[in-house]
């Protein structure tokens, strides 16, 4: 599945529904479904808001490859990119009261593999269809 949408949350909602419908077809366990839904939501919102800066002229490309075993997702924006290492840890005491900055932590916690490429504009993530698949917990 491949979708190209403008930086619009209504469009992203449709894409998420289509991807999750595909996940449902493959009888994913509850934990994997929860993880994929959350990570996809966070990835697309980040791409629209922080990547494309809500610019409706800029696109977000979403690809989903769903099998019985795993779901592979890529989300790519047309923004300026970012360095993953430069994003502060929202769990640090000085950041705990801040209202934003938790999307990446959730993606990396719930997906089994996460890779940033194209200077942070492209996110590739994979979640296996396993109830107790150990999600990496970045420290």
């Amino acid at each position: 599945m491949r979708f190209t949408i403008s930086s619009d949350f209504a469009c992203s909602r449709e894409v998420q529904q289509k991807v999750m419908a595909e996940v449902e077809k493959h009888n994913y366990c509850d934990a994997a479904r929860f993880a994929i839904k959350l990570a996809l939501e966070e990835a697309i919102v980040n791409a629209i808001k922080h990547g494309n800066q809500l610019d409706p002229a800029k696109k977000v490309i979403i690809e989903a490859n769903v099998t019985d075993q795993q779901t592979l997702l890529t989300v790519e924006d047309e923004g300026a990119g970012f360095e993953r290492e430069s994003v502060p840890d929202p769990r640090d005491p000085e950041n705990l009261f801040k209202a934003s900055g938790r999307g990446i932590l959730l993606i990396e916690s719930y997906m089994n593999q996460v890779t940033w490429s194209k200077h942070g504009r492209r996110l590739t993530m994979c979640r296996r269809n396993e109830p107790d698949a150990p999600a990496p917990r970045p420290t």
Binding site: F34, L38, E41, V45, F97, K98, S100, G101, G103
Partner: peptide, 16 residues
């Protein structure tokens, strides 16, 4: 049964 990081942000703002 689902909430996003944006929802967490809203809760933090309310808490503040």
């Amino acid at each position: 049964d689902h909430l996003s990081s944006a929802a967490l942000g809203m809760l933090i703002n309310v808490n503040n």
